[in-house]
Every structure is written in C-alpha cells, then in structure tokens.
Design a protein around this nucleic acid. Structure first.
Lengths: 156, 156
DNA sequence: TGCAATCTTGACTATAAAGTAAGGATTACC
DNA sequence: GGTAATCCTTACTTTATAGTCAAGATTGCA
C-alpha cells in the first residue's frame, strides 16, 4: 500500500505550476529540472494531466504548461484519480464482478476492508487542495493532521 | 495507491486461519485451495507471516499452519506492515535522508501529505483485528465505516 | 518561408513485483 | 529404519510498472 511513482511525481509537477504567479507557465524542461527527473518522464506525466484537463498546454516557442483551474479548485483526490485510479481494482477480480468463478464471491471478508480504506483515503484527499500545498511545509501537514486527529478524538 | 497483491492475499490466508476452531490447523494446500491461488505462491506468503511471528508452522505429516496468537490480538496494521511495510519509502529519497542531493529537501510540499496519509491509513488499520473480519461481511464493513464517518462528522 | 523551440505520440528498454518450480529438510507413523 | 506428508529455501520465469528515446506536429518569430 504505497503511493506510486506516477502519483508522487505527477503531484510534484502540478505543485510547481501551482506556485507560479497567475498567467505564468513552465516548459517541460523547466518542470523536469525543478523536480530532478528527466524531460521524457515529465512529458509523459504532463500528457496524462493534460488529457485529464488538469493542465493546459501550448506548443511552439513560448509554449509550456499552466494549471487549467485555480489551485484552490483542484483537490488531491482528483489528481490521484488521474494518475492512478486503480485502488479499487483488487487482485481478486470479484470486486468488479468480472471473474465469476472467484472463490470469494460469497464469503469475502476482505473486500469491505479495501472498500473502506479507499473511502477513508479518498475523503482525506478530497479535503486538500493544491493551493494548500503551496504554503509552508508546516501548514500543509497541519491541514491533514487535523483530519487524522479528528477521527481519533471521536473514538476516544 | 493500491493494496498490493501480497498484502491482499496474505491477509486472505490469515483470515482462513482465523476462522478455524481453536487447535485446528490448515496445510499449505488447503489454504491455497480455499483462496484459489497456487501452493507455491501461498508458501511464499506463509513463510513471510511465519518469519514475522504471526503464524506458527509444524512440518511433517499432520503439519500445517495456525495463528500464533488469538485473532482478536492481531491488528490489520501489523499484518500490512509485515507484507509490505514500505508506504513511507517514497520515490523521492529525501524522505529517509538517504539522498542528499535531492532537489526537494528544502521546500517539499509532498512529503507531509504522504506522511499524513500514512498516519490516517495506519490508524484505521490499528482499529481492526482479524477477529472482526471473521464475522459477516456486513459487520466488518460497519466497523471501518464508523471510523470513516466519524472523521467526516467532526469536520462538518 | 524557414528555423528554433516546444509539446505529442508510440515504441522501446530497464527495473521491480508477482508468481512458479524443484530439490532439501523435518516430522509422524508404521 | 523407511516412507509419505509436509514445510523450507533458492533460483527462475512471467508480468506490471517506470523510465527512455526518437520522430512527428505545432507555434512564434525573423
């Protein structure tokens, strides 16, 4: 259970764009340099983000990438979904009903756990926007920590 | 961000053992058959779980696997940790301080998010025991859903 | 128009995760 | 002791993920 490379670096690239002043843009090379990854790899990620409508791109000289919306309107849940929307694709195919001979269809104690985990993570990601991550490291951490702490307090 | 195959099937194998009456055990072949995966693969998973002290094994005729503790004393957090304890091993090596030239050391907006996500998931897994999963599908789901719902209610 | 800068696309390679196979070691039973 | 059942261990194969490369398409500018 880990954040994939694609998720992490894609999010990093978006964060670079979110830190720009309004109207500014960055080229592939600039993003790649700031993130310390190759242009080729960055290109692949930006293509995904562009296809999903999270960024806009312009080609040719003076081209580059910008966020398609305000950073405050882009939630982490949407970003993660674009970069790897497969958390619910369990290895047991019965989740999606595709594999009818699966031995777990009747008495599966695992599926509800995976579904609940997905909901918990998703609801945390829905509460954080790109804009919140552009602040200091401390403020971003506090925002998420608050969510975590809340869930602890209620249970006692 | 998904549950790995090793995590899912390892958990499934433990659940088979948790459903046994006290003193009963299952062989590799029996576990494999019930889970619909190969004996070879099951053997690898059980070896991991045995090494970590979650199950005990006896060799030879009449051998097999049992839980090393009561199912009510085994929390999902421990199981996941054994099967894939790498959620915090981010792709950016600055998380662990291993990669000193990482461009993100000073101004990393991502690390706190990953750390917080880890804490949120971990705290949910700490609240669920294997015993809770042996009940009906409904009861297990409800246990986790409650945690999720609590975190929502506090935020309003 | 021609050139340079840029994004786009598809095929390729490398690395990590998952799964398989086979022989060795241990135990129970006769 | 011998034999059959079982777990243990290492090496191998397959598959999925990550990352790279090179050629193509679009744009701005002289």
């Amino acid at each position: 259970m880990k954040v994939s490379a694609q998720e992490e670096y894609g999010l990093r690239c978006l964060l670079q764009l979110a830190r720009l002043a309004p109207g500014e843009s960055l080229t592939l090379g600039q993003i790649a340099e700031r993130e310390g990854i190759s242009s080729a790899n960055t290109g692949k990620l930006m293509w995904l983000l562009n296809k999903a409508g999270l960024v806009t791109s312009t080609r040719g000289t003076k081209g580059g990438y910008m966020l398609a919306r305000l950073a405050a309107d882009i939630h982490l849940s949407e970003i993660i979904k674009v970069l790897d929307n497969s958390m619910l694709e369990g290895h047991c195919k019965s989740y999606t009903g595709l594999h009818e001979t699966c031995v777990h269809t009747d008495d599966c104690g695992i599926r509800p756990v995976i579904i609940s985990l997905h909901e918990i993570v998703q609801s945390a990601l829905e509460r954080i926007t790109l804009a919140q991550l552009t602040g200091t490291e401390q403020s971003a951490h506090q925002a998420l920590y608050q969510i975590h702490k809340n869930s602890l307090e209620v249970r006692g």
